[in-house]
């Protein structure tokens, strides 16, 4: 019977290392206390019914010792814990994107090139993978034990996470947050493949429309282009090159335009108003599905990199690559 799940991601090793250290501390103190109480109980067993114990005087020194030692130990645990945590929370820059939509009770996964999967995810080994996740209903949680990572998918926002598979294989994907009747059926598999196999897998099967291309369509459908069309006198700021930039806000702060910011700008644009623009953008809360939002965000992101394959054929208006002068 195994005591550890497979170590199949780059941080699995670190998590297990921390775990072993914590087991050691736990075992040490549990055994120490357990042994002491049993030994004392036996050694100082009451011999006669009216025997009374000899008094032991309190010791300030002892109290200090057993306050300071645990204190030192927990500082080590804390430091070790956060060092592993930072590894898990900081995605590297060169990650490939995968978009996840959770709904009662299934996982829908989309690769940028348009490949869609249901309850199954194929990823290359040795390449960081970044997940942008949204939920259509309640809270779910994306959990792959072999990768030692999980992340709640909270409705009404994007949740992001990343991992890098280190060993080819087939691993459990669980939904870890209780989400209703068939919570325990919201499971699937992650296939970690050698990069060459992964390329072969991508090549097989016809990718559908890419996310960005679908987003470009929606951009027109929801009439975003009427304000963000980059035509002279457009009422809204240009979105080209926006992703990843610092955006100056009306309240004087600046914010990095990440996925969450883009989402918020669409759903509740007034929360963080771009400096120099009036609050005229309508809110799209409840009007665009989670999938639609992911597509729009993927589209806007695509405007910051090389034009994606789909964009050329899409109905979206051509956008000028340079940003308006209001932006640094």
């Amino acid at each position: 019977m195994p005591f550890f799940p497979e170590e199949a991601s780059t941080f699995a090793r670190h998590v297990d290392g921390l775990y072993i250290f914590l087991i050691a501390v736990t075992a040490f103190f549990s055994l120490l206390i357990g042994t002491l109480v049993v030994v004392f109980a036996i050694k100082y067993h009451r011999r006669s019914p009216d025997e009374v114990a000899t008094e032991v005087h309190e010791s300030g020194l002892l109290e200090i010792v057993w306050t300071v030692i645990p204190f030192g130990l927990v500082l080590v645990m804390f430091a070790w814990g956060i060092s592993v945590y930072f590894r898990i929370t900081r995605p590297p820059a060169n990650a490939i994107d995968i978009y996840v939509i959770a709904k009662q009770w299934m996982w829908k996964l989309q690769h940028t090139d348009g490949h869609r999967e249901m309850n199954e995810l194929h990823v290359p080994v040795g390449v960081p993978v970044r997940l942008t996740m949204a939920s259509e209903d309640v809270i779910h949680s994306f959990y792959v034990p072999a990768f030692r990572f999980k992340r709640d998918v909270v409705p009404g926002r994007f949740s992001t996470a990343w991992f890098e598979a280190s060993k080819p294989g087939k691993y459990h994907l669980f939904c870890a947050e209780f989400c209703g009747t068939r919570h325990s059926n919201m499971i699937g598999w992650v296939y970690a493949m050698k990069p060459t196999d992964y390329q072969a897998w991508l090549a097989g099967g016809s990718p559908g429309e890419s996310l960005a291309a679908a987003g470009a369509k929606r951009f027109v459908e929801h009439a975003c282009n009427t304000c963000h069309g980059d035509q002279p006198g457009a009422r809204g700021p240009s979105l080209a090159g926006l992703f990843g930039k610092q955006v100056p806000l009306a309240n004087g702060q600046t914010v990095v335009a990440d996925e969450s910011y883009l989402r918020e700008s669409i759903v509740n644009s007034q929360a963080r108003l771009v400096a120099g623009y009036p609050p005229i953008m309508p809110t799209f809360q409840g009007l665009i599905s989670e999938e639609g939002l992911l597509q729009l965000v993927a589209y806007i992101k695509s405007l910051s990199s090389a034009p994606p394959a789909g964009a050329a054929t899409s109905a979206a208006p051509a956008l000028s690559p340079e940003r308006k002068s209001t932006r640094p």
């Binding site: 501390v25 549990s30 814990g81 060092s83 592993v84 945590y85 949680s141 034990p145 030692r148 870890a176």
Partner: peptide, 20 residues
């Protein structure tokens, strides 16, 4: 013993894995 396992949970890096 139970309390010490609580400390494991309080360790951020580990709780990511064992939460829920």
């Amino acid at each position: 013993f139970g309390g010490l396992t609580g400390l494991m949970l309080a360790s951020l890096g580990l709780d990511i894995h064992v939460h829920d």
